[in-house]
Simulated scan of single mutants.
Amino acid sequence: MPKQITLRSPLDMHLHLRDGDMLKLAAPLTAESFSGAVIMPNLVPPVDNLDRLLEYKQRIVDAVGQHQFDPYMALFFRQYSEQELAIAKEHMIGIKLYPAGATTNSEAGVKAIDAVEPTFKMMEEMGIPLMVHGETHGFVMDREKEFLESYDYLAKKFPKLNITMEHITTADAVEMLDKHENLRATVTLQHLIITLDDVAGGMLDPHLFCKPIAKRPEDREALLQAALEAHPRLMFGSDSAPHPIEKKECCGCAAGVFTAPIAIARLAQLFDKHDKLDNLQVFISDNAQKLYGIKPTEKLITVTNERFQVPPAYVGHNQHVVPMHANEELEWSISQIG
Protein backbone atom coordinates (compact mmCIF):
# COMPACT_ATOMS: atom_id res chain seq x y z
CA MET A 1 0.00 0.00 0.00
CA PRO A 2 1.33 3.46 -0.87
CA LYS A 3 1.91 5.90 1.96
CA GLN A 4 -0.51 8.84 2.12
CA ILE A 5 -1.62 11.80 4.20
CA THR A 6 -4.85 13.79 4.18
CA LEU A 7 -4.40 17.51 4.80
CA ARG A 8 -7.26 19.59 6.21
CA SER A 9 -7.79 22.98 4.62
CA PRO A 10 -4.25 23.73 3.42
CA LEU A 11 -3.43 27.43 3.29
CA ASP A 12 -0.94 29.48 1.31
CA MET A 13 -0.18 32.55 3.39
CA HIS A 14 1.71 34.46 0.67
CA LEU A 15 0.55 34.22 -2.94
CA HIS A 16 0.80 36.27 -6.12
CA LEU A 17 -2.08 35.88 -8.57
CA ARG A 18 -1.39 38.90 -10.80
CA ASP A 19 -4.36 40.15 -12.82
CA GLY A 20 -6.02 39.88 -16.22
CA ASP A 21 -5.17 36.77 -18.25
CA MET A 22 -2.46 35.69 -15.81
CA LEU A 23 -4.98 35.73 -12.96
CA LYS A 24 -7.30 33.52 -14.99
CA LEU A 25 -4.51 30.99 -15.46
CA ALA A 26 -2.95 31.12 -11.99
CA ALA A 27 -5.95 31.35 -9.68
CA PRO A 28 -7.52 27.95 -10.42
CA LEU A 29 -4.13 26.24 -10.03
CA THR A 30 -4.05 27.33 -6.38
CA ALA A 31 -7.78 27.16 -5.68
CA GLU A 32 -7.98 23.53 -6.76
CA SER A 33 -5.87 22.25 -3.87
CA PHE A 34 -5.71 25.07 -1.29
CA SER A 35 -8.61 26.22 0.89
CA GLY A 36 -7.40 29.80 0.88
CA ALA A 37 -4.46 32.12 0.38
CA VAL A 38 -3.24 35.56 1.37
CA ILE A 39 -3.23 37.56 -1.86
CA MET A 40 -0.41 40.02 -2.41
CA PRO A 41 -1.48 43.58 -3.36
CA ASN A 42 1.46 44.72 -5.52
CA LEU A 43 -0.47 45.19 -8.73
CA VAL A 44 -0.16 48.20 -11.03
CA PRO A 45 -1.70 50.36 -9.65
CA PRO A 46 -1.30 48.88 -6.15
CA VAL A 47 -4.30 47.65 -4.16
CA ASP A 48 -4.18 50.55 -1.72
CA ASN A 49 -7.82 51.42 -1.10
CA LEU A 50 -11.00 49.53 -0.29
CA ASP A 51 -12.56 49.90 -3.72
CA ARG A 52 -9.52 48.35 -5.44
CA LEU A 53 -9.39 45.58 -2.83
CA LEU A 54 -13.04 44.62 -3.31
CA GLU A 55 -12.79 44.81 -7.08
CA TYR A 56 -9.68 42.63 -7.11
CA LYS A 57 -11.29 40.11 -4.77
CA GLN A 58 -14.25 39.80 -7.11
CA ARG A 59 -11.95 39.20 -10.07
CA ILE A 60 -10.26 36.42 -8.08
CA VAL A 61 -13.60 34.85 -7.15
CA ASP A 62 -14.61 34.95 -10.81
CA ALA A 63 -11.30 33.42 -11.89
CA VAL A 64 -11.39 30.43 -9.50
CA GLY A 65 -14.80 29.42 -10.81
CA GLN A 66 -16.34 26.43 -9.02
CA HIS A 67 -13.42 25.81 -6.68
CA GLN A 68 -14.09 26.42 -2.99
CA PHE A 69 -11.46 28.98 -2.07
CA ASP A 70 -11.06 31.90 0.35
CA PRO A 71 -8.98 34.82 -0.95
CA TYR A 72 -7.63 36.64 2.11
CA MET A 73 -7.02 40.14 0.85
CA ALA A 74 -4.24 42.53 1.86
CA LEU A 75 -3.87 46.26 1.34
CA PHE A 76 -0.66 47.78 -0.01
CA PHE A 77 0.97 49.81 2.77
CA ARG A 78 0.75 53.60 2.68
CA GLN A 79 -0.18 56.25 5.22
CA TYR A 80 -3.85 55.52 5.95
CA SER A 81 -6.34 57.55 7.94
CA GLU A 82 -8.10 56.01 10.91
CA GLN A 83 -11.39 56.17 9.01
CA GLU A 84 -9.93 54.31 6.02
CA LEU A 85 -8.62 51.53 8.24
CA ALA A 86 -11.85 51.24 10.21
CA ILE A 87 -13.87 50.80 7.03
CA ALA A 88 -11.42 48.38 5.39
CA LYS A 89 -10.61 46.22 8.43
CA GLU A 90 -13.37 43.65 8.02
CA HIS A 91 -12.45 43.11 4.37
CA MET A 92 -8.74 42.39 4.77
CA ILE A 93 -6.36 40.10 6.64
CA GLY A 94 -3.63 42.72 6.97
CA ILE A 95 -1.48 45.36 5.28
CA LYS A 96 1.63 44.50 3.28
CA LEU A 97 4.67 46.77 3.53
CA TYR A 98 7.17 46.86 0.69
CA PRO A 99 10.38 48.88 0.90
CA ALA A 100 10.29 51.08 -2.20
CA GLY A 101 11.84 49.27 -5.16
CA ALA A 102 12.67 46.07 -3.24
CA THR A 103 10.73 43.70 -5.49
CA THR A 104 8.20 43.45 -8.33
CA ASN A 105 5.86 46.46 -8.56
CA SER A 106 7.06 47.98 -5.26
CA GLU A 107 8.05 51.42 -6.48
CA ALA A 108 5.22 52.98 -4.46
CA GLY A 109 6.49 51.35 -1.28
CA VAL A 110 7.91 52.82 1.93
CA LYS A 111 11.14 54.83 1.81
CA ALA A 112 11.66 55.24 5.57
CA ILE A 113 10.14 53.07 8.31
CA ASP A 114 10.15 55.81 10.96
CA ALA A 115 8.21 58.16 8.70
CA VAL A 116 5.11 55.93 8.73
CA GLU A 117 4.88 55.13 12.43
CA PRO A 118 1.46 56.79 12.86
CA THR A 119 -0.03 54.10 10.63
CA PHE A 120 1.74 51.36 12.62
CA LYS A 121 0.25 52.78 15.81
CA MET A 122 -3.27 52.79 14.40
CA MET A 123 -2.83 49.23 13.13
CA GLU A 124 -1.67 48.14 16.58
CA GLU A 125 -4.65 49.76 18.27
CA MET A 126 -7.11 48.30 15.73
CA GLY A 127 -5.63 44.81 15.67
CA ILE A 128 -4.62 44.88 11.99
CA PRO A 129 -1.60 42.66 11.19
CA LEU A 130 1.44 44.04 9.40
CA MET A 131 3.09 41.90 6.72
CA VAL A 132 6.57 42.92 5.60
CA HIS A 133 8.87 42.26 2.67
CA GLY A 134 11.97 42.50 4.83
CA GLU A 135 14.89 43.63 2.70
CA THR A 136 17.14 46.68 2.53
CA HIS A 137 18.86 47.97 -0.62
CA GLY A 138 22.28 46.71 0.51
CA PHE A 139 24.39 43.90 -0.93
CA VAL A 140 21.97 41.32 -2.24
CA MET A 141 23.07 38.48 0.08
CA ASP A 142 22.79 40.73 3.14
CA ARG A 143 19.51 42.54 2.50
CA GLU A 144 17.34 40.38 4.74
CA LYS A 145 19.92 40.25 7.53
CA GLU A 146 20.25 44.05 7.47
CA PHE A 147 16.46 44.46 7.69
CA LEU A 148 16.27 42.42 10.90
CA GLU A 149 17.12 45.56 12.86
CA SER A 150 13.84 47.05 11.62
CA TYR A 151 11.89 43.98 12.78
CA ASP A 152 13.55 44.23 16.19
CA TYR A 153 12.71 47.94 16.40
CA LEU A 154 9.08 47.51 15.31
CA ALA A 155 8.43 44.53 17.55
CA LYS A 156 9.72 46.43 20.58
CA LYS A 157 8.05 49.77 19.83
CA PHE A 158 4.70 48.24 18.89
CA PRO A 159 4.48 45.13 21.11
CA LYS A 160 0.79 44.50 20.35
CA LEU A 161 1.25 44.79 16.58
CA ASN A 162 1.37 41.35 14.98
CA ILE A 163 4.18 41.41 12.40
CA THR A 164 4.74 38.77 9.74
CA MET A 165 8.24 38.46 8.36
CA GLU A 166 7.39 37.37 4.85
CA HIS A 167 9.33 34.69 2.94
CA ILE A 168 12.28 34.50 5.32
CA THR A 169 15.48 33.09 3.82
CA THR A 170 18.19 33.16 6.51
CA ALA A 171 19.22 31.46 9.73
CA ASP A 172 19.34 34.93 11.29
CA ALA A 173 15.63 35.43 10.53
CA VAL A 174 14.80 32.12 12.23
CA GLU A 175 16.64 33.38 15.33
CA MET A 176 14.75 36.69 15.16
CA LEU A 177 11.45 34.78 15.09
CA ASP A 178 12.17 33.51 18.59
CA LYS A 179 13.12 36.93 19.95
CA HIS A 180 9.65 38.55 20.04
CA GLU A 181 6.22 37.02 20.65
CA ASN A 182 4.57 39.39 18.17
CA LEU A 183 6.72 38.17 15.27
CA ARG A 184 5.65 35.37 12.96
CA ALA A 185 6.95 34.35 9.54
CA THR A 186 6.22 32.64 6.26
CA VAL A 187 8.66 30.50 4.32
CA THR A 188 8.49 29.33 0.71
CA LEU A 189 8.89 25.91 -0.84
CA GLN A 190 11.92 26.95 -2.86
CA HIS A 191 13.82 28.32 0.14
CA LEU A 192 13.37 24.98 1.91
CA ILE A 193 14.95 23.16 -1.03
CA ILE A 194 17.46 25.28 -2.96
CA THR A 195 20.47 27.50 -2.33
CA LEU A 196 22.01 30.21 -4.48
CA ASP A 197 24.16 27.50 -6.03
CA ASP A 198 21.06 25.98 -7.63
CA VAL A 199 20.18 29.34 -9.16
CA ALA A 200 23.57 30.49 -10.44
CA GLY A 201 26.21 27.92 -9.53
CA GLY A 202 26.21 26.40 -13.00
CA MET A 203 24.11 27.50 -15.94
CA LEU A 204 21.79 30.25 -14.73
CA ASP A 205 18.30 28.92 -13.99
CA PRO A 206 15.90 31.84 -14.41
CA HIS A 207 12.96 29.80 -13.12
CA LEU A 208 14.61 29.58 -9.69
CA PHE A 209 15.42 33.29 -9.49
CA CYS A 210 13.31 35.12 -6.93
CA LYS A 211 13.51 37.90 -4.37
CA PRO A 212 14.69 37.44 -1.72
CA ILE A 213 17.25 35.28 -3.47
CA ALA A 214 18.10 31.82 -2.16
CA LYS A 215 20.96 31.93 0.31
CA ARG A 216 23.59 29.56 1.75
CA PRO A 217 23.23 25.87 2.72
CA GLU A 218 23.28 26.75 6.43
CA ASP A 219 20.38 29.16 5.87
CA ARG A 220 18.36 26.53 4.05
CA GLU A 221 19.06 24.05 6.86
CA ALA A 222 17.82 26.47 9.55
CA LEU A 223 14.62 27.17 7.60
CA LEU A 224 14.06 23.50 6.91
CA GLN A 225 14.48 22.46 10.52
CA ALA A 226 12.04 25.14 11.69
CA ALA A 227 9.46 23.99 9.14
CA LEU A 228 9.95 20.27 9.80
CA GLU A 229 9.54 20.83 13.53
CA ALA A 230 6.38 22.88 12.90
CA HIS A 231 7.64 25.99 14.69
CA PRO A 232 4.43 27.50 16.16
CA ARG A 233 4.96 30.90 14.52
CA LEU A 234 6.08 29.69 11.09
CA MET A 235 3.60 29.24 8.23
CA PHE A 236 3.77 28.05 4.66
CA GLY A 237 3.65 30.94 2.20
CA SER A 238 4.57 29.91 -1.33
CA ASP A 239 5.37 33.35 -2.73
CA SER A 240 4.38 31.60 -5.95
CA ALA A 241 4.88 34.32 -8.54
CA PRO A 242 3.92 33.57 -12.14
CA HIS A 243 5.61 35.40 -14.99
CA PRO A 244 5.20 34.78 -18.73
CA ILE A 245 8.05 32.70 -20.11
CA GLU A 246 9.29 35.63 -22.18
CA LYS A 247 9.76 37.62 -18.93
CA LYS A 248 11.81 34.82 -17.36
CA GLU A 249 13.95 33.51 -20.21
CA CYS A 250 15.43 36.86 -21.17
CA CYS A 251 17.90 39.55 -20.15
CA GLY A 252 16.55 41.38 -17.12
CA CYS A 253 14.82 38.21 -15.89
CA ALA A 254 11.77 38.86 -13.68
CA ALA A 255 11.97 37.65 -10.08
CA GLY A 256 9.58 34.91 -9.03
CA VAL A 257 9.26 31.12 -8.79
CA PHE A 258 5.97 29.51 -9.85
CA THR A 259 5.20 26.70 -7.41
CA ALA A 260 1.43 26.81 -6.91
CA PRO A 261 0.53 23.64 -8.86
CA ILE A 262 3.22 21.44 -7.28
CA ALA A 263 3.60 22.91 -3.78
CA ILE A 264 1.55 20.43 -1.76
CA ALA A 265 2.98 17.34 -3.44
CA ARG A 266 6.54 18.64 -3.15
CA LEU A 267 6.10 19.56 0.51
CA ALA A 268 4.78 16.08 1.25
CA GLN A 269 7.83 14.60 -0.46
CA LEU A 270 10.14 16.86 1.54
CA PHE A 271 8.53 16.18 4.93
CA ASP A 272 8.37 12.44 4.22
CA LYS A 273 12.08 12.38 3.32
CA HIS A 274 12.86 13.70 6.81
CA ASP A 275 10.28 11.46 8.53
CA LYS A 276 8.23 14.50 9.58
CA LEU A 277 5.08 13.96 7.55
CA ASP A 278 2.92 14.21 10.69
CA ASN A 279 4.02 17.86 11.09
CA LEU A 280 2.94 18.96 7.62
CA GLN A 281 -0.65 19.71 8.70
CA VAL A 282 0.54 22.17 11.34
CA PHE A 283 2.95 23.89 8.97
CA ILE A 284 0.55 24.18 6.04
CA SER A 285 -2.62 25.14 7.89
CA ASP A 286 -2.96 24.91 11.68
CA ASN A 287 -0.37 27.55 12.56
CA ALA A 288 -1.87 30.07 10.13
CA GLN A 289 -5.37 29.51 11.48
CA LYS A 290 -4.20 30.18 15.04
CA LEU A 291 -1.95 33.13 14.27
CA TYR A 292 -4.46 34.97 12.07
CA GLY A 293 -7.64 33.76 13.75
CA ILE A 294 -9.15 32.49 10.51
CA LYS A 295 -11.48 29.58 9.76
CA PRO A 296 -10.93 28.51 6.14
CA THR A 297 -13.27 26.61 3.89
CA GLU A 298 -13.25 22.91 4.71
CA LYS A 299 -11.26 21.01 2.09
CA LEU A 300 -9.51 17.65 2.36
CA ILE A 301 -6.46 17.03 0.17
CA THR A 302 -5.06 13.50 0.09
CA VAL A 303 -1.44 13.23 -1.02
CA THR A 304 0.07 9.86 -1.89
CA ASN A 305 3.60 8.71 -2.59
CA GLU A 306 2.81 7.95 -6.21
CA ARG A 307 4.86 9.60 -8.91
CA PHE A 308 3.78 12.75 -10.73
CA GLN A 309 5.33 14.16 -13.88
CA VAL A 310 5.50 17.95 -13.70
CA PRO A 311 4.54 19.44 -17.07
CA PRO A 312 7.00 21.66 -18.96
CA ALA A 313 4.61 24.60 -18.61
CA TYR A 314 1.09 25.64 -17.71
CA VAL A 315 -0.57 27.24 -20.69
CA GLY A 316 -3.86 29.10 -21.10
CA HIS A 317 -5.48 32.49 -21.47
CA ASN A 318 -2.62 33.65 -23.71
CA GLN A 319 -0.10 32.82 -20.94
CA HIS A 320 2.79 30.34 -20.84
CA VAL A 321 4.29 29.84 -17.36
CA VAL A 322 7.09 27.43 -16.41
CA PRO A 323 6.79 25.88 -12.93
CA MET A 324 9.51 24.83 -10.53
CA HIS A 325 10.58 21.24 -11.29
CA ALA A 326 9.30 21.50 -14.88
CA ASN A 327 9.74 18.19 -16.74
CA GLU A 328 10.85 16.45 -13.53
CA GLU A 329 9.16 13.58 -11.72
CA LEU A 330 7.98 14.11 -8.15
CA GLU A 331 7.69 11.17 -5.77
CA TRP A 332 4.35 12.36 -4.33
CA SER A 333 1.13 13.51 -5.97
CA ILE A 334 -2.36 14.68 -5.03
CA SER A 335 -4.66 11.67 -5.28
CA GLN A 336 -7.96 13.05 -3.98
CA ILE A 337 -9.62 16.41 -3.36
CA GLY A 338 -12.74 16.52 -1.25
Rank of each mutant, 00 (worst) to 15 (best):
H191E: 04
I87L: 14
A37T: 03
H67K: 09
K121C: 06
K96G: 03
V47D: 08
D178W: 06
L208E: 00
A263L: 09
M324E: 06
A112F: 09
A185S: 14
T297H: 11
N279P: 04
K111P: 00
L29E: 03
G127W: 10
T188P: 00
L54Y: 01
T30R: 07
L11C: 06
S150F: 10
P244V: 05
K247S: 01
D197C: 03
E249I: 01
V110N: 02
H14P: 02
D197T: 03
Q309E: 13
F69G: 01
A86H: 02
H91W: 07
A265I: 09
D239A: 04
P2T: 13
T103N: 13
T30I: 15
K160G: 06
F158S: 05
A74N: 13
G20C: 08
I334V: 15
E144H: 03
N182L: 13
C250F: 01
E329S: 14
S238T: 08
G316H: 05
I87C: 06
I5S: 03
G101N: 10
H191A: 06
H16E: 08
C251P: 00
L54C: 03
P45R: 10
S81T: 15
G237E: 05
G36V: 12
P118G: 12
P99L: 12
I93T: 11
H167M: 04
A27F: 12
L29C: 05
I60V: 15
C251Q: 05
V257Q: 00
E221T: 11
D219G: 02
I284Y: 08
I194Q: 02
Q79R: 14
V199E: 05
I95R: 05
L204N: 06
N42P: 09
F258L: 02
M235Q: 12
A74L: 15
A263I: 10
Q66T: 04
P2I: 11
G256F: 05
H325M: 15
Y314D: 02
D12N: 06
F271Q: 04
F34M: 14
K121L: 15
K24Y: 12
L53T: 10
D197A: 13
P45Q: 09
A112T: 06
M73C: 09
M203L: 13
N42I: 14
L53D: 01
T103L: 07
A185D: 04
E32K: 15
K179V: 11
P311I: 07
E84H: 05
L17Y: 08
L43D: 08
I264F: 04
L53S: 12
L280P: 01
P99C: 10
P2L: 13
P45G: 09
L177N: 07
T104V: 12
Q83S: 10
F236H: 09
A173F: 12
L11T: 01
A268F: 08
P232A: 06
D198Q: 12
T302A: 09
K96Q: 08
M40Y: 12
A255E: 00
H180A: 11
A227D: 06
L270F: 10
A86C: 09
A26C: 08
I168Y: 05
L54Q: 09
F34S: 04
N162H: 14
L161C: 12
H67G: 00
A255Q: 00
R78C: 05
L148M: 12
E175P: 02
C251H: 01
G109S: 10
L15I: 11
P232G: 03
G316P: 00
M141W: 02
H180R: 13
R8L: 14
H67Y: 15
M235W: 11
E144M: 08
F120G: 06
C253W: 00
N287D: 00
G138Q: 05
